[in-house]
Computed example of a mutant assay.
Amino acid sequence: MGGAARNLATLMTGVSLEMTGKDVPELAAARELLPAGTRINITSLATEDLSLRLAAARAVKAYGMTPVPHLSARRLTSVAELDETLAALHTIGASENIFVAGGDPDRPQGPFPDSLSVITSGLLETHVVRRVSITGYPEGHPGIPDDALWPTLTSKLAALEARDLHAEIITQFGFDADPVLDWIAAVRERGITAGIRVGVPGPAGVSRLLRYATRLGVATGTGLARRFGADLLATAGPDRFLEALATDYHPDRHGLVGLHFYTFGGLRATAQWITDTEK
C-alpha cells in the first residue's frame, strides 16, 4: 500500500456523518452500512423543532450509533431554552457529545450571540456533556473577518479546556485540499492539538453542492465544476478532493485528522460511497 493509500485509510478511520431531523428514513436505509458507534451529527435547522431532533437522536442510538446533536447559539431564545434542550437530550442519553455553532441568524434571538457564550454558560457540564465539537473555517467565513477567526477559535478551545470538556474541530466542507491542509498546519503551529475532522461533501448533484457552497462562500460554480470535472447537472463525489488530501497529508505535521461527511440529504448514498471506498 502506497503512502497516499495508507494516508487515506488513516483518514477514513472512524468517519462521522451529518443528518437532519427529517433524515431518519435515510438513516434506517444506511444503518447496515455504518459501523456500530459511528458518530452522526444532527443539525439544528430553523425548520425543525426540538421534538424532531430528539426523535432523530433516539433513532441514532437505536441503531447502535452515537448521536451528536447541534446547538445553534443565535437561535436559542433564552437560558431556559438551552437548559431544557440539554435536559431533554440528557434524558434520552444523547447529551454526552454536542456540536456547538453560532448558527445562521445574523442577530441572536436570545442571550447567546455565539458558540463561546454557550460554552461558558456552565450548562453543558450540568447536563453531563463530555465532548464538544466546534467549527473551523479553512477558507474563511463570509460573515466573520479573517483576523477574528483565530482568536475566536483559540478562545473556544481555552474555554473548553478550562471546563474539562474534550474538544474537537469540524471544518466547513471545501473542494480544495491545499487550503485545508495549510489551515491545519497553521492550527498545529499555534500549539493546538485537538482532533480535527475535515468536512467532506458527500456524493450529490453539483447544482446542490453549488447552492450550499455559495451560501457558505466556499466556491464558485466554475471552480466547483472544474474541481469535480462535472457539469452542473451531474453528480459529483469527493474522490478527487480526498485523493489530494491523502497525498499531501503528513501525520507528523498535521496531527490527528479524520473526516466528517456532509450528506446533503443523501445519507444512504454517502454511506454506500464510504463502504465502496473502503473495500
Results as ranks from 00 to 15, higher is better:
residue 97 N to W: 13
residue 94 A to E: 03
residue 34 L to D: 10
residue 209 L to A: 11
residue 162 A to M: 04
residue 131 R to Y: 12
residue 26 E to W: 01
residue 153 L to P: 14
residue 147 D to F: 07
residue 114 D to M: 07
residue 163 R to V: 00
residue 133 S to K: 09
residue 53 R to H: 04
residue 246 A to G: 00
residue 272 Q to P: 04
residue 162 A to L: 06
residue 132 V to D: 10
residue 143 G to A: 12
residue 68 V to W: 00
residue 217 G to H: 06
residue 162 A to E: 14
residue 46 A to E: 11
residue 252 D to W: 02
residue 63 Y to H: 14
residue 41 N to R: 11
residue 2 G to K: 03
residue 161 E to M: 01
residue 25 P to A: 01
residue 54 L to N: 04
residue 99 F to Y: 12
residue 2 G to N: 14
residue 121 S to V: 05
residue 201 P to E: 03
residue 4 A to D: 07
residue 86 L to C: 06
residue 29 A to G: 15
residue 82 L to I: 03
residue 81 E to G: 05
residue 127 H to D: 11
residue 69 P to D: 00
residue 4 A to L: 04
residue 75 R to Y: 02
residue 224 L to P: 04
residue 172 Q to V: 09
residue 219 A to R: 06
residue 198 V to Y: 02
residue 162 A to G: 15
residue 49 D to K: 08
residue 215 R to K: 12
residue 110 G to M: 04
residue 89 L to T: 08
residue 38 T to H: 05
residue 113 P to L: 11
residue 242 L to Y: 05
residue 88 A to Y: 02
residue 34 L to Q: 10
residue 230 A to N: 06
residue 83 D to H: 12
residue 107 R to F: 05
residue 36 A to Y: 02
residue 147 D to Q: 10
residue 138 P to M: 09
residue 256 L to D: 15
residue 141 H to E: 09
residue 139 E to V: 14
residue 240 R to C: 08
residue 104 D to N: 10
residue 23 D to I: 05
residue 47 T to C: 07
residue 146 D to L: 10
residue 152 T to P: 00
residue 16 S to I: 04
residue 89 L to A: 09
residue 24 V to L: 00
residue 172 Q to T: 09
residue 154 T to G: 04
residue 85 T to K: 02
residue 86 L to T: 06
residue 247 T to Q: 12
residue 145 P to A: 14
residue 19 M to A: 14
residue 208 R to K: 12
residue 23 D to V: 08
residue 231 D to R: 14
residue 2 G to F: 01
residue 125 E to N: 12
residue 200 V to H: 09
residue 211 R to E: 15
residue 94 A to I: 01
residue 187 V to H: 07
residue 228 F to Q: 10
residue 265 G to Q: 06
residue 132 V to I: 13
residue 249 Y to S: 04
residue 248 D to Y: 01
residue 192 I to R: 05
residue 270 T to L: 08
residue 49 D to E: 12
residue 230 A to W: 03
residue 130 R to N: 13
residue 200 V to P: 05
residue 65 M to R: 03
residue 81 E to R: 13
residue 1 M to S: 14
residue 199 G to M: 06
residue 15 V to R: 11
residue 49 D to N: 15
residue 198 V to E: 03
residue 228 F to A: 12
residue 175 F to M: 12
residue 258 G to L: 02
residue 103 G to C: 03
residue 51 S to A: 14
residue 139 E to M: 09
residue 136 G to K: 06
residue 27 L to Y: 02
residue 274 I to Q: 07
residue 130 R to I: 05
residue 104 D to A: 14
residue 89 L to V: 10
residue 270 T to D: 04
residue 21 G to H: 01
residue 264 F to H: 14
residue 30 A to G: 08
residue 258 G to V: 06
residue 131 R to C: 08
residue 234 A to S: 15
residue 229 G to I: 09
residue 16 S to F: 03
residue 123 L to A: 09
residue 240 R to I: 12
residue 201 P to L: 08
residue 171 T to I: 07
residue 53 R to W: 02
residue 157 L to D: 14
residue 279 K to M: 03
residue 275 T to I: 03
residue 243 E to K: 08
residue 233 L to Y: 07
residue 185 A to H: 07
residue 101 A to E: 01
residue 43 T to M: 01
residue 57 A to V: 02
residue 134 I to T: 14
residue 206 V to I: 13
residue 140 G to V: 10
residue 181 L to F: 00
residue 168 E to F: 03
residue 195 G to C: 04
residue 96 E to M: 06
residue 62 A to K: 02
residue 189 E to L: 11
residue 199 G to N: 07
residue 89 L to C: 03
residue 167 A to S: 15
residue 4 A to V: 09
